[in-house]
């Protein structure tokens, strides 16, 4: 393992300390591991809180700021945060208008956020939860923990964040978030496995000429392993899997996200985006907005995910709304 580390035990704390130093407009509670806006909750605005295991940066800490999250709680690497952290984040984000929790659908995340929602409710905070489960690689939801939350998390946080700024009620912000999730589908392919500092070696063995198709953001294997092929063919399978599951509805265009998993150069991601754009063009699907880069990563895993979100004019307008966070910034 070659990483910039002082020690595996202090990895997360050291990284958060650096994050705090780099972003003075955010407040980082290193003890409780909660990232909030330095100026506190925005009066009258519905709060937006998310969190999950670390290792997916900039998700979620990098999306705290104007137009997106009010607070984030990073857990250990690939391990959901504990309820205490979530409750602390909810308290910090609540201005009295209630708080929407954005939760990725993993067993641990759901349990810890459910416990936290109960505790925050006991304290008198109104809480709504939006569960993100966009990964179409998980086909058999009956015999698994269900579809995983992946790339769509970024879209939910951005668009629900804009709805909160617009002045939507607690229920309306949650509803917009659920709408984005329901309209989004993702599919990921890994070229290599990521390495956690704790394990010190790759999360799974992948021969040099093989790829993991349908991989999850913690390196959970996906649908199958296959030989590496030209990008055009791999991306065609990814787009096919997505559109088979949900084709854009009448009057919908798509927001297209090509997301790097941490160890793939931007040039390759653009190459993938080119294929996505060509394939959608051939099918008559219009791309209204696009985003290419590392947003929902899996440490140093090489690979990418494609997310397509069917978006009407309202969702596009909220997507375009100003945002200023360490990980996403436009319009201001």
């Amino acid at each position: 393992m070659k990483k910039f580390l002082n020690s595996a035990d202090t990895y997360l704390t050291d990284a958060l300390a650096g994050f705090a130093a780099a972003h003075p407009d955010l407040a980082v509670d290193l003890e409780n591991r909660v990232v909030t806006r330095a100026r506190g909750a925005v009066p009258g605005k519905v709060g937006l809180v998310s969190g999950g295991g670390s290792g997916h940066e900039p998700l979620h800490t990098g999306f705290v700021g104007e137009g997106m999250l009010d607070a984030a709680c990073p857990g250990e690497v690939f391990t959901s945060p504990v309820p205490d952290q979530v409750v602390a984040a909810v308290r910090a984000a609540d201005s009295g208008a209630g708080v929407v929790l954005v939760v990725k659908n993993y067993t641990g995340d759901v349990m810890n956020f459910d416990l936290a929602a109960e505790l925050a409710g006991d304290e008198g905070v109104r809480v709504e939860t939006v569960l993100v489960d966009d990964d179409v690689a998980v086909q058999d939801s009956t015999f698994t923990a269900g579809r995983r939350g992946t790339g769509a998390t970024l879209l939910v946080e951005k668009i629900a964040g804009a709805a909160a700024v617009r002045g939507d009620s607690l229920e309306a912000v949650a509803e917009i978030g659920r709408r984005v999730n329901a309209a989004s589908r993702s599919f990921a392919v890994a070229l290599t496995a990521g390495t956690t500092p704790e394990a010190g070696r790759p999360g799974f063995d992948l021969p040099a000429d093989e790829i993991e198709v349908g991989v999850g953001i913690h390196g959970e294997p996906g649908r199958r392993r296959e030989k590496l092929r030209p990008a055009r063919e791999i991306v065609a399978d990814m787009v096919e899997a997505i559109l088979e599951d949900r084709a854009p509805g009448a009057g919908e265009e798509v927001i297209a996200l090509v997301n790097g998993l941490g160890g793939t150069p931007l040039s390759e991601l653009y190459l993938v985006y080119g294929e996505v754009a060509r394939l959608l063009g051939e099918r008559g699907v219009r791309i209204s907005r696009s985003l290419v880069g590392d947003y929902v990563t899996s440490l140093d895993m090489a690979g990418c995910s494609v997310t397509l979100c069917g978006a009407d004019a309202e969702l596009v307008e909220l997507w375009d709304a100003p945002v200023s966070t360490p990980g996403l910034r436009w319009g201001m």
Partner: peptide, 12 residues
């Protein structure tokens, strides 16, 4: 355990 572990094993 609920406060320190996280994941599914903490709550369980």
């Amino acid at each position: 355990l609920v406060s320190k572990v996280g994941g599914a094993s903490g709550p369980l």
